[in-house]
């Protein structure tokens, strides 16, 4: 039972991830009353668990290789530091990425134990940088293609609305699948091969359930608050943003590098902004996002190294 204690930090991370990121995939649909929160949470939760089980293994392998050592104490420090960073940043109202919090903590331990996997870290950081840029490009392309479809094919406004709003539910479910596949490693990746009797299949299930629980229990308020972010989104732009985010996150799930769905959706919204006129993008929230992204891994790294020095 004691061996399972560090897992509680991972479960908390998964729960927090679900609570914060559920709105990225179903926020507009719920806020616009296209689908009830209960139904969205059910769809989202099922898709997250499915994504985690079917395609979460690659990310788990990456974190398993990145994490130094096998000690329960190190696992506990890493997951606790990532959880504390997440909570602190959230309390400061700064956007936070679970991937960056956990990787920052792993790096803190890696530096302290002088066992950093630099090549893996480089690969992860490159993926973090490519995430928003890729999402910008994908969103730009989807916007142009879908925009041309709606512009040049004569249809009733009701048909158009039906395509967009139904599409938002389908794309939201796909986004939840991609989120589960990509982000399950953030919750339970570091425990792979380090806890007796727990296989990777168990870890993907536990991680998926934790994320789904976060969506079900704590994402309602965030979902209803959607739309006040960096650019006001209508049905069409939400569809484009969620689809671009989902494709981006899914690609990195297949590569095996957990990335931030929030970074992907921000990139997607900028891609839409380039089409609509960049003036539509608000700069102040973007600045907060940039600060959050820079600070999260640094704080997490410092805290983990400090915790190692104190407790180990």
């Amino acid at each position: 039972m004691i061996q399972l204690a560090p897992l509680s930090g991972g479960i908390f991370l998964g729960w927090s991830l679900g609570a914060n990121n559920g709105a990225n995939v179903f926020g507009t649909a719920v806020a616009s009353r296209i689908v009830s929160f209960q139904r969205a949470a059910l769809l989202c939760g099922a898709a997250i668990i499915l994504g985690a089980l079917l395609q979460g293994q690659a990310g788990i392998d990456t974190y398993s290789r990145l994490f130094p050592g096998d000690s329960m104490k190190l696992l506990l420090i890493t997951s606790a530091v990532a959880a504390i960073t997440m909570t602190g940043m959230t309390l400061l109202h700064l956007p936070v990425s679970t991937s960056q919090a956990i990787v920052g903590a792993i790096c803190g331990i890696g530096l302290a134990t002088e066992s950093m996997q630099w090549h893996l870290l480089t690969r992860i950081v490159i993926c973090w940088l490519v995430t928003p840029v890729g999402a910008i490009g994908i969103a730009w392309l989807i916007y142009v293609l879908l925009g041309a479809f709606f512009k040049h094919i004569p249809m009733s406004m009701l048909t158009r609305d039906k395509i967009i709003w139904s599409g938002l539910i389908i794309v939201g479910t796909y986004g939840a699948y991609a989120l589960g596949a990509n982000n399950v490693a953030n919750a339970t990746g570091i425990f792979s091969g380090r806890i007796a009797h727990l296989t990777d299949r168990h870890l993907t299930l536990v991680g998926g359930l934790a994320i789904a629980l976060g969506v079900a229990t704590f994402s309602k308020r965030i979902m209803h608050a959607v739309g006040s972010g960096i650019m006001p989104l209508d049905g069409f732009t939400s569809l484009v943003a969620v689809l671009a985010m989902s494709i981006t996150v899914h690609i990195f799930a297949m590569i095996g590098v957990p990335v931030s769905s929030s970074q992907a959706i921000v990139g997607a919204i900028i891609g839409i902004g380039i089409n609509k006129g960049i003036w539509a993008v608000k700069l102040k929230p973007l600045r907060n996002i940039a600060i959050g992204w820079l600070m999260t891994p640094i704080i997490s790294l410092i805290l983990a190294a400090a915790a190692y020095a104190v407790f180990v």
Binding site: F150, K151, P154, M155, S156, M157, L158, R160
Partner: peptide, 9 residues
């Protein structure tokens, strides 16, 4: 036109 070809309404 809103219900046949709304972009040209």
């Amino acid at each position: 036109k809103l219900f046949t070809d709304f972009t040209n309404a």
